[in-house]
Amino acid sequence: MTTNIKRRVFLKGSVAAGTVGIAVGAGLLAPQAVLAAWPKAAFEAKSIDDALKNAMGDASSSASDAIKIKAPDIAENGAVVPVSVSASLDGAESIALLAEGNAQPLVATFAMGAGALADVSTRIKMGKTSDVIAIVKAGGKLHSARKSVKVTIGGCGG
């Protein structure tokens, strides 16, 4: 039950964000109002559980083979780690992307709207060797997958 309420809050947040976006574009709102929809507590959380509770409404997830993470075994540069997440789960609603070793592990959330597939790619920063975690919400439940990425210190700084 708790999950469902939180989920509704999350979705409502997305809708509100669209409106705020237009208002900001038109110069109607002060900058601090922009943050209204951004899940601050989730992004500032130091632990994975806190991040997930705030971003996805729940911290418990079950491992799923239906989620594929594509990321390098060894990051060429921790400042730019290409990561792709795709999931073949029915009714996938949103994806949370975390770097376990980062001081603030939650990197991004993606809410799939009209017709969107659970298939996103981006480039993230990783402070040290750790797992990249993808959490996919589908059918009201959280599914997870992880992939280890080695982050090393280079020698050719220049």
Binding site: P72, D73, I74, A75, E76, N77, V80, V81, P82, S84, S121, R123
Partner: peptide, 12 residues
């Protein structure tokens, strides 16, 4: 080849 993968993703 290891770094080439990341590079290919960036050149995308």
């Amino acid at each position: 080849n290891v770094s080439r993968d990341s590079w290919n993703a960036v050149e995308e």
